[in-house]
Amino acid sequence: MTLALEIKNLVKTFGGLTATDNLNFDIKEGRSVGLIGPNGAGKTTVFSQIMGELQQTSGQISLFGTDLGTLPTSKRIRLGVSRTYQIPRPFLELSVVENIRVGLMPNSIWSMIIKGPDHTKEEKLALEVGLAETDFEKPASELSMGDLRKLELARTIATGAKVLLLDEVFAGLTTGEIAQISSLIQDLRAKGFTLLIVSHDLPALEPLIDHVIAIERGRIIATGNFKDVVNDESVRASYLGQAT
């Protein structure tokens, strides 16, 4: 199996603060990995560095063997990695299908102008993530949190990326919505997407992942299968706030 994502000696410092401290891990293609850790452990910072929203201080991030270097976010997405946000970032005044349309667009001005939108593909994606047909023409500002997360997933998948970074996908959702998003993620796994999932909701996370990485203060403190990591001494300690 090839490596979808490979992170080597990743370091990010903000002034005197080390947010990512010599991080090393990789994800094989088609695998689903959980990234856990207490608040402020540096999970989102890792996402931002993979996407190029933050530039790492040192170290290397490779996607399917290509070094991402200092590429801008849009180029990284074209290489096959995309992310969602803890707080969804929809285009509030655009309709649901238009939001997905932006994700489906090729990065070429010329083709944006001469080719019309692919309505069937847009609607298929919207239905796939579980949005209702009656919502298609609604502006995103009228959606519930659960639907916003679905919409953001749809737009992320629409970019054609095969490696998805999902940030706190269950935050702010009702139990019913958690179940929906959960089965959606299972579908993605079945389709061969490579996933890196951040969540505080450990019971909801467990069935979605092959193994888990626990970090604290930007450092890996445990890695392996879910049960072992969660029962690890240092992981328990870090969640209880007794940092070692």
Binding site: T73, S74, R83, R89, F91, L92, V102, M105, M112, I113
Partner: peptide
Amino acid sequence: RTRIGTALTAIGLNESAVEGSGLSV
């Protein structure tokens, strides 16, 4: 009225999300 119009509107609404959709802002 083409897709470029939608993309430009999206820039006005949320620039970083446009970049995050794989389009060069």
